[in-house]
Design a protein around this nucleic acid. Structure first.
Length: 101
DNA sequence: CTGTTGACGCTGG
DNA sequence: ACCAGCGCCAACA
């Protein structure tokens, strides 16, 4: 865990603000956190998420509305999204679900 | 220091 | 709609 704390905090804060029943894209989050064009940075932070985190990481998708995870973690993410009231159609969520402050 | 990696995104075919 | 190619850049090795 040698990441830059400022970037991590800013990004975690934004993700924490995603309302239930809504989703956001990596790039969208990076932009809101003050790092336009740094979508991969968001992915990196989430990759190193501690398991005891309360972050709604499952509300973070790629810009196409698809999950960026495969396997068990992907199923877990989908399960949590359904629980939020977000359903997938053909493996994607409709654009209407994207968070728009 | 150099080289690779990657929960991404956009463009063009 | 799908996909290869490129840009991006912090973290790693």
């Amino acid at each position: 865990m040698s990441q830059n704390p400022e970037m991590r905090e800013a990004i975690l804060l934004v993700i924490n603000a995603i309302p239930k029943g809504r989703v956001a894209a990596y790039g969208q989050i990076a932009e809101m956190a003050g790092f336009p064009g740094r979508a991969r940075l968001v992915g990196y932070i989430l990759r190193n998420l501690p398991s005891d985190s309360n972050l709604p990481w499952h509300r973070v998708l790629n810009s196409q509305g698809k999950l960026s995870l495969d396997g068990p973690s992907g199923q877990e993410q989908q399960r949590r999204l359904e629980n939020d009231g977000v359903s997938l159609y053909k493996g994607k969520v409709a654009k209407a679900y994207f968070w728009q402050p």
